[in-house]
Design a protein around this nucleic acid. Structure first.
Length: 476
RNA sequence: GCUCCGUUCGUCUAGUGGUUAGGACGCUGGCCUCUCACGCCGGUAACAGGGGUUCGAAUCCCCUACGGAGCGCCA
């Protein structure tokens, strides 16, 4: 169903840089971005930095870099609320003049006292409007500006995901618009901004659902039409508890460091609270084609790291080799591995693509192609580089030394030939070779591994392994 | 405490009055195999509870329980 075909859809993502952008914020951004893309609209990025005390430059950078990494490009922005104080003041003056707002001189102590008393009486703590009709300023006290909320009637939020939610105005109190230092509060600046920026669909976390009726009242006081709201459910940790540092509440950029592909993260996130039949895999284009904010679930969902891993592996298997090569290089460099000399990264990535869940994992498994190892994997050496391996290794060395056409096919023939000649199973020859060249018991197919490693390194490592095996003595 | 929201396998979900309640991750049995994986075949497991409405409820209504959010000069 289309919403308002006459109005161009404009959505926004409005994070506050008081903490790092994490998985939950990213999904909200994704839904918002998709909603705009889906309807051929525009997406705005706005930084809500009015809490100057807790906002950090670093957190802003994470937002910008994170959005960039994920490909969630904004058509407008980043816009900063701190650039718009004049506008907030302008609107505030209007509200004051029209009687929709008033100065309040209550001190923090006074308000605390009032709330404590209300709580004690079992009431909902709320501002009682005691300054509503105050005519005289209180000397020496810088006032806040409060909104005069209607005290009769109801506010209906026709939420795209929650459905129709009704609030009684008498449950709402007079919210602060401007703090005593003149800085706007969230519930006020968000309305002015969304109105000024022509936002048609507000997609945000459902922790804002309770704020929505107040904001709608402010829109009405301003004579503006409120946007369509869509409150998406929260993301919980794997244990069903609130998302914490333990799981997903880390900077989204950490997922890049850990070797996740952005398409995997996006695919994982879009399926949290949204689905299209039984489909699990969605390219970004498919998401844009199929997504609708109205199809989002109402209930919170838990973050499942295993499924993210599975998707990441899927995308690693699917990604173009050049992409993987670039990521692999980035990861190897982060591990301090010099990879300009050695097998082509693309070829290595192809060899590993079906056996790595993350690019970080792939990089670690591929180190032996670019660096000599100091020691063998202990258990592997014990099992595969014993006395019994000496002869197969010698023969392999001889065979490979004579090989001109250094490719997987011919290499495979030599390994197989040695096994057959000695009446051994492939495993008895391939495993010693594997440990000899890679240092451990696991690698891509042995012929591919040897081909990639190159003749010189292979022979050098074999030479060493033969010595180790021969000197293993008669211990079985 | 008050207001608002939510509740299908362990997890993500399909389902909109009639299904053996489907898929996916995970776990697990098997096949493949030079290791690890990939892949393929199979298994495991759910409608929070109680009342209605109805010939018939996962689906509609009410209550209860449990969980969450908000109630700031935070966003």
């Amino acid at each position: 169903m289309s919403d308002t075909p006459t109005r161009t859809v404009r959505t926004r993502f409005a994070p506050s840089p008081t903490g790092y952008l994490h998985i939950g914020g990213v999904r909200t951004a994704l839904f918002s971005w998709l909603q705009a893309r889906r309807h051929g609209g525009e997406f705005v990025l706005r930084i809500e930095d009015t809490d100057r005390a807790r906002s950090t430059e670093e957190a802003i950078q994470v937002i910008l870099d994170g959005m960039e990494w994920l490909g969630l490009r904004a058509d407008e922005g980043p816009l900063y609320q701190t650039d718009r104080f004049d506008r907030y003041n302008e609107i505030a003056a209007q509200l004051l003049a029209s009687g929709h707002a008033y100065h309040c001189y209550c001190t923090k102590e006074e308000l605390d006292e009032m709330r404590a008393a209300q709580m004690a009486r079992g009431e909902k703590p709320r501002y009682d409007g005691r300054c509503r009709d105050r005519k005289e300023p209180k000397p020496g006290v810088p006032p806040v500006l409060r909104f005069r909320n209607p005290d009769q009637g109801q506010v209906v939020v026709d939420d795209k995901v929650r459905g129709r939610v009704v609030f009684d105005n008498k449950e709402l109190d007079d919210l602060v618009l401007l703090r005593s230092d003149g800085v706007p509060t969230y519930n006020y600046s968000v309305v002015v901004d969304d109105m000024d920026m022509g936002i048609t669909h507000v997609v945000r976390g459902d922790d804002h659902l309770n704020n929505t009726p107040r904001q709608i009242n402010v829109y009405h006081a301003l004579g503006a039409e409120p946007p369509v709201f869509a409150h998406v459910p929260m993301i919980l940790g794997p244990d069903g508890a609130k998302l914490s540092k333990r799981h997903g509440a880390v900077s989204v950029l950490q997922y890049r460091q850990e070797g996740y592909l952005p398409e995997a993260l996006l695919n994982y996130l879009v399926r949290l609270g949204w689905s299209h039949g039984d489909q699990e895999i969605f390219s970004v284009d498919e998401m844009i084609e199929l997504f609708d904010i109205g199809d989002v679930n109402k209930s919170a969902s838990s973050f499942n790291p295993e499924k993210l891993l599975w998707l990441n592996q899927h995308y690693i298997k699917e990604a173009p080799p050049a992409r993987l090569a670039a990521e692999l290089q980035w990861q190897l460099e982060r591990l301090g591995v010099e990879c300009s000399r050695g097998p082509a990264l693309e070829a290595v990535a192809e060899a590993f693509r079906e056996r790595a869940k993350t690019m970080h994992e792939m990089a670690q498994a591929a180190i032996f192609f670019y660096q000599d190892f100091e020691t063998y994997h202990e258990k592997a050496a014990r099992q595969h580089l014993g006395a019994a391996a000496a002869e197969p290794l010698k023969q392999l060395m001889a065979g490979l030394e004579a090989l001109e056409d250094w490719q997987a096919g011919p290499i495979h023939d030599i390994v197989q030939g040695v096994a057959e000649g000695l009446g051994l199973k492939m495993g008895k020859v391939a495993q010693p070779l594997r440990v000899a060249v890679s240092g451990g018991p696991v690698s891509p197919p042995i012929d591919v591994t040897v081909a990639l490693l190159g003749k010189d390194k292979t022979l050098a490592r074999l030479r060493h392994a033969v010595v180790v095996a021969a000197s293993a003595g008669d211990c079985p």
